[in-house]
Structure formats: C-alpha cells, structure tokens
Design a binder for these strands. Structure first.
Lengths: 257, 257
DNA sequence: TAGTGGTCTAGACCACAAA
DNA sequence: TTGTGGTCTAGACCACTAA
C-alpha cells in the first residue's frame, strides 16, 4: 500500500515523485508502460490532482515520464531521451547507444588532491578524496579515459567497492542510497597527449573531446570532480530537447482570433 | 493596460508568459529587477494564482526569471545563467562572456542544399534555403566559423537583411516576429582543416570544437541547419544547471521524522 | 509583522485519443 | 462515448525574508 507522510517536512508532491521514481527504477513500471492516470494517483495516494501533477511534472522534466494528451502518461522510452541534457553515467550512456560498456581500473587511491580540485570541490585543507582513474571501453574498444575525485567524507564506503566494471553512480545509489542531482560541466576540444593517445589507441595529437566538471547531490553538496576524455572518432555529445515547459501549450496552433 | 484574451485558443498562462517575456525583452523589467508579485499579477491580469504561477514557471524554466522564497521574483541576472543549456546566439553567448562579438560575411546565397541537409531539415525536393557563411570574432580575434542554412519559406525576408554584424536570431525575432524555441545539436571534437585553420588563424590540425544541428520554432517546424566550429584554445562549452523542478522542494533539508 | 513564494485542496470545463 | 491530460478558479495555510 502506497503511503505518503503528511507530516513529513518533505512536500507531498516530492514524496510522490520519489515514490514514482522508485517504481520506475525497480522496474515496476517498465519503459514504455502507461502509469496510473492522474485521477487514479489521487485516489491511491489520497492527494489532490494538482499535487499529482506537480509530482508528475518533476519526472517529466527529468525525462523519466512523458505525457500524451488524451492517452495517458508513460514511462519514457530511453531511446527517446538519448543524449538529452541528462546526467548520465558512462555505463548508461553507452547502453543507450547500444554499445556494451566495460572498464579497466588503472588507479584507485585515497589522496589529497591538487589545489584546483580542492577549490572546485570546496574541500577543507587536508581533506581526502578517492581518486579513481579508469579506461573505458565500448564494445571492447577504448572510448574514454576518466579520472574522478570523490569526496571521501560524503561516501567513505566507496573505497572498498570494486569499480572495475560497475557504474559508480549505480553503486552510490543502490548500495549507499546516494543520488546525484546535477553537474556543472564544460566541454572542450583538445589533442591527445602521447599517454592519452596510447591508452585510447589513437595517434598522438588526434582530436579528443574533454568533459570536466563537478557533480552535486540533491542537497547541493559536491561529491565528485571528474574529467573524461573521449575519442572524437567514436563519440559525439548530443544536446537535445531543451525541455521548456514554455515550449507552448498543448494546442500548438498559434491560432489567434 | 495589460490584457489577456480569454477567448484566445492560447491558454491564459501562455499569454501571460509572453506578456512577461515581452516586458523583459523591452527592458521594462531590467536585469535584476523584482517583478510584480504573484498576487499583484493576479489582480493586474485578472487570473488566478495558479495561472500566474504556470506563467512564471515557464520563464523560470527558460532562465529568464528566478524566484526567491520570501523575497520575490526577479529578472535573472544574465551572469547567473551563463553557459546553461539555453539556446543562445553567438552574439548573446559572447556578450555573456564579456567579449565583443562581431562577424564577417563570407558568403550568402540562395541555393538548394545537399541531400543530408535536405533530410535533416525535412525539405521538399527542390526547396530552397538561404546559405550564410560567416567568420565570427570575439574582441576582434577569430573565434568561430559558421555555416547556416535557413529555410526560405519560413522567412523569405531574411534574404534582404544585412547579416554582417547582427544576430540572425535577433533579426528574426525583432523584424519578423519569429522566435526560435529549441535545437537538436551535437558537439564533437575535430582537427582544423587547412581552410578552417587559415580562417581561424590557428595551425592546421589544431583541435576545434564542432557544434552542429537543427534549430526549431515553437510550433515544431525546423528553420535552420547550422554548423559552427570553434577554436578550442578560446572556447569551451558549458553545460550547467540542469534546471530540474524536481531538484527538490524549497525546504531542502531532507529532514525525516 | 507584513509580504513573498511554496504547497495543497476541491472542485470545474476543455481538447484530445481510442474504442 | 469514456477516460486521458490541459487549463483554470478560489480559496487555504505554510515557511521564508526583511523591515
């Protein structure tokens, strides 16, 4: 029996959104499935329709659900949200591209990071991070080289995890209940250094796409600094549906009397 | 006197959103200004509070407005939305980076584009486009090389415009009342060809960032295919605040009883 | 304390899709 | 025709901010 806590400090719509997110994650609602109608959700969770709509709005904005006027609300087909400005792990990203992700752990070490990293993560002097360097493959061909610094205090347990072929984000969510919320990243082009070229199996100086930035939790705390380089012959980054609630009303005809 | 048309096919919240957008664009509301409160807007436009909120939601999602709990709603400071996943013209992009944009027209010609462009724009066989090729400067130093194809039928008047130092998007909006709504773009890294290197004043083979895609109007029609290359030593692309209405409730403390 | 945005309710009527 | 999401109203109480 689904239950929301009326006395929680968390708003009802937010609790409902999390409940729905959960169902999708657990596969109770599969990709493409129609979920309960807004009026059914009202009944099920004993809330008003606008509260239901606020919750569904959240997931629609995240790209997890899609509304179809007159038909219902559906779990978004992942192929539909391919490459949108969502926060994806390498693992998820590759799966969506129908490539088999794998990775090789090159280094993993608790350390005090360099000054720029400290600054970007907002660390206290001397605060430790877990550095993880991995080479990542798509269908067994090198695709990306990645170095991440995770703030140890936020998730000490990460040190003992095997990160060889697992998505760190999945481990964080499933084992530690930590959900990442957003990232501030930049993308730039560069030429592969000798080391990078060797690892990625391209020529020195070959163009690479560099993505680097900081990943944040829902409560605003930073958790990770990451820098990934991608072979430009195998990877393009897509920016897509800028989901604007203002994209227009359902009736899109712009008919003016 | 502000007026909304109750009998328009356009929803009230949408009309109100446009009205507010207009005021911001015209400078009636300046950057950083507090706008009328939600209750004042109710009175002014004779609509309910949720309609006002729906309208404001639109502009908040676009990054034009920002709410501050307990204080009011403000016209977003452009420096705050720097580099977010908004649709920006080169002109606007450079201004936000505090660089002076200018451009040199290299070519402008009505033509029937190549097959791939035709397909991506969904053109009928033989349909014409306006091809515009420009070299773009930031503080008088070459920054980007751009080639765009505008569907002629959507905006025939564009042919006669001087596009040397103007933002095409501003011309479209201000002279023709055409607003672009979204884009589907990809970003990749590449090496500069001999021609590109010469134009951008870098070495042949230097890394460049390539952004290409299709731009759409609010009604879903495509209007432009664009391809821009940027000097990677002068330009990084930032992806930022993924504005999720689900980022969390105002009270962000996650306190559970 | 007064005013703001944040959340929520309980209705209502509409346009749209599918049967 | 029935059920869906889309829009809208008229309230209410809350938490937050600034005076």
């Amino acid at each position: 029996m689904p239950q929301l806590n009326k006395f929680s400090a968390l708003p009802l719509y937010f609790q409902l959104a999390q409940a729905l997110r959960e169902k999708i994650r657990k596969g109770e609602y599969a990709k493409g499935d129609q979920i309960a109608s807004e009026r059914e959700l009202m009944e099920l969770y004993q809330v008003s329709r606008s509260t239901v709509r606020d919750a569904v709005d959240c997931l629609v904005n995240e790209g997890l659900l899609a509304r179809k006027h007159g038909s219902g609300t559906f779990v978004a087909d992942p192929t539909m949200k391919l490459g949108l400005m969502r926060l994806t792990s390498f693992t998820e990203d590759m799966r969506e591209r129908h490539l088999e992700p794998s990775s090789m752990l090159i280094a993993k070490e608790v350390q005090i990071p360099s000054q720029p990293i400290q600054t970007q993560l907002g660390l206290l002097p001397g605060e430790q991070v877990l550095m993880v360097r991995r080479l990542r493959f798509a269908d067994s061909i090198p695709m990306s080289l990645n170095i991440s610094y995770f703030i140890l205090e936020v998730c000490p347990g990460l040190v003992d995890e095997n990160l060889e072929n697992q998505s760190v984000y999945e481990v964080l969510e499933n084992k530690f209940g930590i959900r990442i919320a957003r990232a501030e990243q930049i993308i730039r082009a560069d030429s592969a250094s000798e080391y990078q070229a060797k690892m990625l199996n391209v020529k020195t100086g070959a163009p690479i796409l560099v993505i680097e930035g900081v990943v944040y939790l829902e409560d605003g705390r930073p958790i990770e600094h990451l820098c990934s380089i991608y072979r430009s012959d195998r990877y393009v980054f897509s920016i897509n549906p800028v989901r604007m609630s203002s994209a227009g009303p359902a009736n899109n005809e712009m008919v003016e009397p």
